[in-house]
Amino acid sequence: MKTIFNSIVLGVIMITCLSCNANNKSNKANVVLVETIKHETTENEANNQFIKVALLLDTSNSMDGLIDQAKAQLWNIVNELSYAKCGDEKPNLEIALYEYGNDNLTGAEGHIRQVLAFSSDLDEISKQLFSLTTNGGNEYCGQVIETSLNQLNWGKNQDDLKLIFIAGNEPFTQGRVSYKFAAKLAHKNDVTVNTIFCGDYEQGISTYWKDGADLAHGDYMAINHNKATTYVSTPYDDQILKLNQKLNKTYVAYGSVGESKMTQQSLEDDNARGYSSENAVSRTVSKSSHLYKNATWDLVDAEKEKDFKYEDLNEVDLPKELKGKSKSEIKDYVSKKRSERESIQSEIQTLNQLRRKYISKNQNDNDNKLENAMIHAIKTQAKEKKYKW
C-alpha cells in the first residue's frame, strides 16, 4: 500500500491547501523546481483537497522558546485547521519541517536540515518536533526558503494554497542566497512566504523580515518567542482525556511497523501531557478529527483506502488477536473497532464544542503568539481560495 507520509521540516512549516475553486485557474508562470525527496502520490491524494504546511524554524541557541512554543501549540494549530471547509469538503493536511541556523548542521549545506518532508502522519510530526535541539549557528533565511522550494513536492495544482512560515531572530539578509531571490521564486511558484520575527516588531522591519514577506505576498509578524504558552483548563478536560484512553484501544496495529507506531502514539500522548493536561486534551481532539490518519499501520484506517485488500494481508502481519482468523472474522473485528472509534470520536467532538466556547470566554487572544500569528495568516490567505471556518 502506498504511503502519503513524508518528512516535516523544523525551521519552516509550509502549508499547502488545495483551493475549492477548481474552475478558477491561475495563469501564473511556474518555475521548475528540483525535487530531491521522493513523494508518492496516491489516487486518494490526487483527488482530494489538501492543506500543506511547511515550517522553517531557527534552532540556534536563542531559539529554545520558539521550539517550545511550536511543541506546545502544534495541536491547537492542527485543530483549527481541522475546522476548515471548502464547500462541503474538509481538506486534508500535510506538514513539512525544516531547521536552520544550528552549528550541528553541515555548513556546506547552509546549516539547514529537512527534518520531515510533507507528511500527514501527525504522530511523526510531533515526534520530530520533540527531537529538535538548539545550538549556535548562522541563519541563512534565503537559502532555507530556496531549499524548501526545491526539495518539497509542492504539486502542480495551481489552485493549491501553498504557505511557508519561517521564524527566527537574525537579519533576513544573511547567507549566499538573497532573500529577494528566494521570495520571488516562491511567488512565481504560487507559494506564499510568511515571516515570523522573534523579537521587537520594528527591529524585524529594519532587518528585512517584513520585506521578505512583502515580496512573497505573505504576512509579517513579530512575536515574543520566550513567552510561555498559556492554557485554559475547562470542565470537560478530564472527560476528554478518559475518552483518549478508550480511543487508543480501537487501533489495530498490523504490518512491520504496526507495533512500533502504536508505541509512538502513546509516546506522543506522553509528550503532550508533559507540557500540561490541557495540551494533552488538544492532542486528543486532533486524534478525533479527520486529519488524524494512520493507514500505514492501523487496519481500521487502512481498510478505507481504495487500494486496500484483505487478501493482501499476510498472517505474519496480523496482531496476535487476529492470527488464525478467517477473512470474515477479521472484517467483523475491524468493523467493531471502527464503530467504537467513531462513537468515541463523536463524543470527543461534542465535548470539544463546549470546551471551545469555554476557552473563548476565558483566554486572551494574544496569549499564544506563534499559534495566533500562524492561524491568522492561514485564514486570511485561505479566503482567497474560498476556504471558510
Rank of each mutant, 00 (worst) to 15 (best):
M1W: 05
T3V: 06
I4L: 02
V9T: 14
L10T: 05
M14E: 05
I15K: 06
C17A: 00
S26D: 06
N27L: 10
V34Q: 07
E35D: 10
N44E: 07
N47H: 14
Q49L: 12
I51F: 04
V53G: 04
A54H: 01
L56C: 03
D58Q: 14
M63Q: 11
D64R: 10
D64W: 13
K71W: 04
L81S: 04
P91E: 08
P91I: 03
I95V: 15
N104R: 13
G107I: 08
G110F: 09
S119G: 04
S120I: 00
D121F: 07
D123R: 00
I125D: 04
S131H: 00
T133I: 12
T134L: 08
G137C: 13
N138P: 08
E139T: 09
V144W: 02
K156H: 11
D159A: 13
L161P: 05
V177Y: 13
A182F: 13
D190M: 13
T192K: 08
E202T: 11
G204D: 05
S206Q: 15
K210Q: 14
L215H: 09
K227E: 14
Y231C: 02
S233G: 11
Y236G: 04
D238S: 14
I240H: 00
K242P: 04
T250N: 09
A253P: 14
G258N: 04
E259H: 00
M262D: 15
V300F: 02
A302C: 02
K304I: 15
E305I: 00
G324A: 03
K327W: 00
I330E: 05
K336V: 10
E340C: 01
Q353C: 02
L354R: 11
S360Q: 15
N366C: 06
N368D: 12
M374V: 03
I375S: 02
